[in-house]
Amino acid sequence: MQAIHWPSMYLPGTTDNFVSNEVIVRDLTVTELWAFLVDTSKWEGYYDNAANIVPEIKGDPVLHQGEHFRFDTFGFPIDAQVMELVEPLDDAVARIAWHGWQDGDENTRLDVYHAFLIERLSGNRTRVLTQESQIGVPAKEMSTQTPNPMLNGHQAWLDGLVKAAREAK
């Protein structure tokens, strides 16, 4: 199976918090899922933890390589930039990752790398993997919480993504 491409600064196990979530579903294609992941105008419809999304390109909610955008999530206002975007040509592996940050002092600054991978598996199955690596005091605090809010929040994102894609079929 495919894996996330990590910049060395965010390598899992070296940061203050890391979460990994995955679903494997039947009867949905990479392309069907991708449409709901890269279109930020759809996020609030299936993921309660994303709000106030502002893409850099006014009138175009679909994310593009290098694009900056803003959104609120987990109580943080996040500035972000798309660092990797590989569209699912012919339903092949798709990837999107962004660097996100919240400016602030040493106690409030947050720096994250959040990535999604969608790949076709045998037996009419599709795998969706999302992982996030975080640096900063807020990340350290979240890592000690049980249950981990990032783990549960990202699972809700995947579950909502799958549900929205199924309902659109």
Rank of each mutant, 00 (worst) to 15 (best):
T126C: 06
A80G: 10
E132K: 03
H64W: 03
V93T: 15
E106L: 08
I57L: 13
P88Y: 06
T144W: 02
L121V: 07
Y113H: 10
A50V: 08
V93A: 07
W157V: 05
G104K: 02
Q102C: 00
Y46T: 07
E141I: 10
K140Q: 10
G136F: 08
T108R: 12
N52P: 00
F74R: 01
Q81A: 05
P88N: 06
V82D: 03
T73K: 01
D105W: 09
E67T: 00
K140E: 04
D111W: 12
G59S: 06
F74T: 00
E132D: 05
F116Q: 01
V112D: 11
D90Q: 13
D103T: 04
E67Q: 09
N152K: 13
G136V: 13
V93I: 11
G75I: 11
N152F: 11
L110P: 02
V54G: 00
H99S: 14
M150P: 04
E67D: 01
D91G: 06
A51I: 01
Q145G: 03
A50I: 07
A139K: 14
V137Q: 13
V93C: 08
F71Y: 12
V137D: 12
Q65E: 15
L117I: 07
T146N: 15
T126E: 06
Q131S: 05
Q131Y: 00
F71L: 11
E67P: 00
T146H: 15
T73A: 09
L121E: 14
M142L: 08
K140P: 00
S122T: 05
L129Q: 13
E119D: 03
R95H: 09
D90V: 08
W101C: 07
N107S: 15
F116N: 03
N49Q: 14
G45D: 10
D72F: 05
G104D: 02
W43I: 06
G153Y: 12
V112C: 11
W101M: 08
G123Q: 02
F71R: 07
L117P: 03
L151Y: 15
Q102W: 00
E141V: 12
N148F: 09
Y47D: 09
L129P: 07
Q134C: 12
D90W: 07
